[in-house]
Design a protein around this nucleic acid. Sequence first.
DNA 1: CGAATACTTGAGTGGGGTCAACGCAAGTGG
DNA 2: CCACTTGCGTTGACCCCACTCAAGTATTCG
Lengths: 250, 250
Amino acid sequence: MAVRLSSHPGHVHLIRKLKALGALPAAEETALLDLPVTLKEMAADQDIAADHTRPSHSGVLLNGFACRYKMLPDGARQIHSFHIAGDTPDLISLHLHTMDHGLGTLTPTTVAVIAHEVLRDLMLRHPRLGELFWRDTLVDAAIYREWMTGIGRRTAHGRIAHLFCEMYMKSRAVALANGYVFAFPATQQEIGDALGLSTVHVNRVMQDLRSEGLIATRPERRAAILDWDRLKALGTFDSTYLHMDPVRAA
Amino acid sequence: MAVRLSSHPGHVHLIRKLKALGALPAAEETALLDLPVTLKEMAADQDIAADHTRPSHSGVLLNGFACRYKMLPDGARQIHSFHIAGDTPDLISLHLHTMDHGLGTLTPTTVAVIAHEVLRDLMLRHPRLGELFWRDTLVDAAIYREWMTGIGRRTAHGRIAHLFCEMYMKSRAVALANGYVFAFPATQQEIGDALGLSTVHVNRVMQDLRSEGLIATRPERRAAILDWDRLKALGTFDSTYLHMDPVRAA
DNA sequence: CGAATACTTGAGTGGGGTCAACGCAAGTGG
DNA sequence: CCACTTGCGTTGACCCCACTCAAGTATTCG
């Protein structure tokens, strides 16, 4: 059932995210919100796009959480990124036609599905939007580099601290943080698969961070940062790679 | 001193690379080769673009080797990617204005430096070229994901095997491989910094791979793959992520 | 032919992995 | 409303892959 993107309240997160990336003129904003999309409600642990497939559509996450991941032949999993409302995680299938990894939901999720041809036409009509989306994929790439740095060279404590800093910054940018509290529904298993750690070790390190008074986690799958400065120092977190300052970027 | 990109023989690697990414019509090829560039000869271990700077130009590697890297406060280094002739490693500065990492040479190198405004104008005139370059940055991102997977979930033997497979495929794509022999001038130290391993361990594992008859390295800084199938299996290498098949991609 | 810059080797160590339970809350169905 | 299941977090014991430190031995190059 085709509706306009603007018909679902989740579109505000996309707009906020694009505005955090750079100037979004009114004409472009209107063109984007007028796009015909299909709303897809998904359960947790479903593939939005499976590895090795060739999608003909891309999606905007309107709510819920998703992740990008790769399964290895021995059953090990590496999670490459977490995605929250406002993200366009499979925009890349517009130019990389065969998926080289999977994209799956972590929680029940609403996705606005848009046909590739519609997106291509939009970007031809509005090159400024094309640039913003390109920029978005480049920020994703910067995040991969940062994770690579963490997995390769940071201790387990530093990696987990860094991840909490990043998820907080991303949530705040789309107004999904309430003070230092934000939704972070990943299990310890998933955090381990993201950071190259075992579940058991994630558990022990998170206990350390909690007992040190750095973070708190709630049964409702929310996280809170209790001491931003010390957490940031522990994870040697420098937000430059998130490229969230549109003023300096302009 | 401004010359045309076509004036340096290294331009052929760029053209080959773009053609491996997708169709490159003659008009676009001509427009690209006519670009005014400045040729810059650089020594080894110099920064093409330093961390935290705001470049106003991007470069094409015409020959030599470079790498993208990040230094951590404790002195540790993570190398994010290796780059060979034909690569455009700092194209991203066109849209991410502040460098969140460094880009440096590994060997003496020739770089064609192009002003951002010239590139922007080129892509407005030729959206098809813009798409190809976007695609190129997406392939780089796919390589980051693959490295992340390796560092997070592969053994040291698997990581090194995978890296040799990747560097061979990249060299072959721009006709810089001779059979299974290709230039790979990274030191064991640099390989370790790329794969999240210590120099000592890289050394021991490479001895294993040599004595197993999988690879050979030559004093002239060339590498040879002696048993492609076993090396590929050891690194669980699947070249999908390099997106090198323009036919299926079209 | 020194002086760097790699590459090698050995010995000892530790961060994080594995394996195997156990606790506990939230369904879910009878 | 209780028995069963399922998913997630937690704990303990043991172990190994890869790291560190320290000392070599080639190469390469001015």
